[in-house]
Simulated scan of single mutants.
Amino acid sequence: MEVEVKEGLVPVSEDPVAIKIAELLENVTLIHKPVSLQPRGLINKGNWCYINATLQALVACPPMYHLMKFIPLYSKVQRPCTSTPMIDSFVRLMNEFTNMPVPPKPRQALGDKIVRDIRPGAAFEPTYIYRLLTVNKSSLSEKGRQEDAEEYLGFILNGLHEEMLNLKKLLSPSNEKLTISNGPKNHSVNEEEQEEQAIFHVAVGYPV
């Protein structure tokens, strides 16, 4: 009997790799140690300057860089389906950068200053990052809309937060009702909290 191999986006419960990432994140320790990375330019063939500027800042953020490098980079063959497109894309982005190569010691005369050249790596276009705008149905992808780097940063952080919360539910499914999502739309409360809210409404004279 052949097992159906799912592809594309799937719920976290149907993603066989999700539990492995959840266990990694459960035991991760944030590292704030700076990393000397070889700079690489991001090619801008469209109106993606606000995205590219944000990405460069995130790559230079040590906790973000170390966290994404801690998660394995899976190929399409290893992971044909995924429930974490945002995490996957940023793991891939961080793996595009490597440590700054150590240049050979230059010959110098006594008293001369040492000048070290910084040689950037090849520029690339992070198209997989741009696709997240349509995968997650962001309004930032609408034509004619004013783009904003701060809003895009919020889109990234909220997306990563939501995916990590969903992964965490795999480790403690019984506490799913107690989880508060990052945003007012998905805010869920348990029965005790609902009773407390009802009592509060009665006390202040609001209809329940």
Rank of each mutant, 00 (worst) to 15 (best):
Glu2Cys: 01
Lys6Leu: 15
Leu9Met: 13
Leu9Ile: 15
Val10Ile: 12
Ser13Gly: 07
Glu14Arg: 12
Pro16Cys: 15
Val17Gln: 09
Ile19Lys: 14
Glu23Asp: 10
Asn27His: 11
Ile31Lys: 12
His32Ala: 13
Val35Pro: 06
Val35Ile: 15
Val35His: 11
Ser36Leu: 12
Gln38Glu: 11
Pro39Asp: 06
Arg40Val: 02
Arg40Leu: 08
Leu42Val: 12
Gly46Val: 07
Asn47Ala: 14
Trp48Ile: 04
Trp48Asp: 12
Cys49Asp: 15
Ala53Tyr: 10
Thr54Val: 15
Thr54Ile: 14
Leu58Ile: 05
Leu58Asn: 05
Cys61Tyr: 15
Pro63Ser: 08
Pro63Ala: 03
Met64Pro: 00
His66Ser: 04
His66Ala: 09
His66Val: 06
Phe70Ile: 00
Ile71Phe: 04
Pro72Lys: 04
Leu73Tyr: 10
Gln78Arg: 01
Ser83Arg: 05
Pro85Asp: 08
Met86Pro: 07
Met86Asn: 01
Ile87Tyr: 00
Asp88Trp: 03
Asp88Gly: 07
Ser89Trp: 01
Ser89Thr: 11
Phe90Tyr: 12
Leu93Lys: 07
Met94Pro: 05
Glu96Asp: 07
Phe97Ala: 04
Pro101Cys: 03
Pro101Phe: 05
Val102Glu: 10
Pro103Ile: 03
Lys105Thr: 13
Gln108Asn: 02
Leu110Trp: 14
Leu110Ser: 11
Asp112Phe: 03
Arg116Asn: 05
Asp117Trp: 01
Asp117Val: 14
Arg119Gly: 00
Gly121Tyr: 07
Ala123Gly: 08
Glu125Pro: 03
Glu125Val: 00
Glu125Leu: 09
Thr127Met: 08
Tyr130Cys: 10
Leu132His: 15
Leu133Met: 15
Thr134Gly: 04
Lys137Ala: 12
Ser138Lys: 03
Ser138Pro: 06
Ser138Val: 08
Ser139Gly: 09
Leu140Asp: 09
Leu140His: 13
Ser141Met: 13
Lys143Thr: 12
Asp148Ile: 04
Glu151Ile: 14
Glu151Trp: 01
Leu153Met: 10
Leu153Ile: 07
Phe155Met: 03
Phe155Gly: 06
Phe155His: 11
Asn158Gly: 10
Asn158Ser: 13
Gly159Lys: 01
Leu160Phe: 07
Leu160Gly: 09
His161Val: 07
Glu162Phe: 02
Leu165Met: 12
Asn166Trp: 02
Asn166Gln: 15
Asn166Ala: 13
Leu170His: 05
Glu176Arg: 13
Lys177Cys: 04
Leu178Tyr: 14
Ser181Gln: 08
His187Gly: 00
Ser188Pro: 02
Val189Glu: 01
Asn190Glu: 12
Gln194Gly: 03
Ile199Lys: 11
His201Ser: 05
His201Lys: 15
Ala203Leu: 15
Pro207Asn: 10
Val208Arg: 11
